[in-house]
Simulated scan of single mutants.
Amino acid sequence: MSQTISAMQASQLYRDEATGTRLRELIADVGRRSGEFPDDLANHLPMVLEAMARLGAPAARLEAYADHYTRSHAVPMQPPAISALDDATWRSALGRREREGDLRRYFSARVSKEGGSATARAVMPVLAPGIAASATHGLMRLAYAFLRNDDAEVAAALGYWAATYLAYEGIPAERTPDATDPLSCLIDMRADPALHNLDAPTHLLWKWIEAMGKLPAFRDRLGRLVAGPDFLDRIRPVSLALYAGTMSFEALHAVTGCHWLRLVSPNIGKPQSLAVHFWEVVMALYTKIGMPLPPTSEELEEWRHLPLPADAEIAAAAVASDDEHDHSLVFSAFEEYRYTGDRLYKVVAARRVGLIAG
């Protein structure tokens, strides 16, 4: 049976119990729709409604934003059924967007029997290499599902991830991982002329990621990272520095992605291996932003000491925005600040919503 946040928990997380109740209704309604909208863009709505509510949005704002988002993006319903999937056949539908409905029905049935965490743990060895699914937004949806303790959303997330599965295939089995520094993996790419001045196949992030997987100079760098016990902790500050230095759309997803990885980690068997697959996606996107050098430690420290508006002001600016990436970044930044104590997270949050320059 699906479990969601209780009324008592909701009263502590949201403005009031009524907001928590309306949020559950809205997310359940959104759950009937597809994980993407035309053309192959991620439907952020189930996740950003949760983020907005935790940032202080009242029920009326959540309702208005859900209506705006669904209409402005023409978010469709799930694809119609093609044929039922089972434990022996669901892998055959990996990466097939037209099978999203079938995959979500399969995972809904499985989660109802096994529970969300048990199902995710069992299938993650299959799904983890395809973490680039919908530009990592399958991971995002799963993370928020676990944040909400919502098994219905866990099933939706797993089906969405499977339907949009995107992996780097054909990495030589004899390749032995030998790289432990995620920052060095980025910096070393700058010396390769074949990785400069690349043309974007489309505006879609996942199409760029897919194209990079076909480039020999990039493929040579895959499968080399060691999934050490602290790998997620090692990529977190690199992601933050990269975003602070560029404030780019691509680096934003590195910051939020580290938060998502932290949320799913207790519910999967090998979280550091999943983090390695995630970092290979970041490596691909690093080429898209021109492979800039990260800020110096002195620059980062200077930014950490910039005057900041109050948390409530940053949160309110995010809630007032209609840009789903404002809600996502600010919420993840606040949560990562609580986890690390690094004030730079609040700085980039304030920058993102235009409250400080940079």
Rank of each mutant, 00 (worst) to 15 (best):
R97D: 11
R352A: 14
L23R: 04
S83R: 15
A155P: 00
Y69V: 05
V154G: 01
L158Y: 08
A122L: 12
A118T: 14
L62Q: 09
L45S: 04
F334L: 06
A251W: 00
P76F: 04
T164I: 01
A350I: 01
M247D: 01
T19Y: 07
A120S: 13
L261S: 10
K270I: 01
L344K: 00
T180V: 12
D311I: 07
G101Y: 13
Y65P: 09
L204P: 04
I131P: 05
L198M: 07
D40A: 15
P177S: 01
A251G: 03
A191H: 10
A275R: 01
I171D: 01
M189A: 14
S328Q: 13
A200V: 02
V238Q: 08
E302P: 00
L142W: 02
R221G: 02
A217H: 03
Q9D: 15
A244M: 08
G358V: 13
P79Y: 02
L306M: 13
A132V: 04
L355C: 01
T180K: 11
A109E: 14
A241Y: 00
Q272E: 15
L306R: 15
Y69I: 02
D39G: 14
M77R: 11
Y160C: 04
Y243C: 14
W208P: 02
E169L: 05
D323T: 06
A118M: 13
Y337K: 10
I314Y: 02
E335C: 13
V238Y: 05
W161G: 01
A88K: 13
A312P: 00
A60N: 09
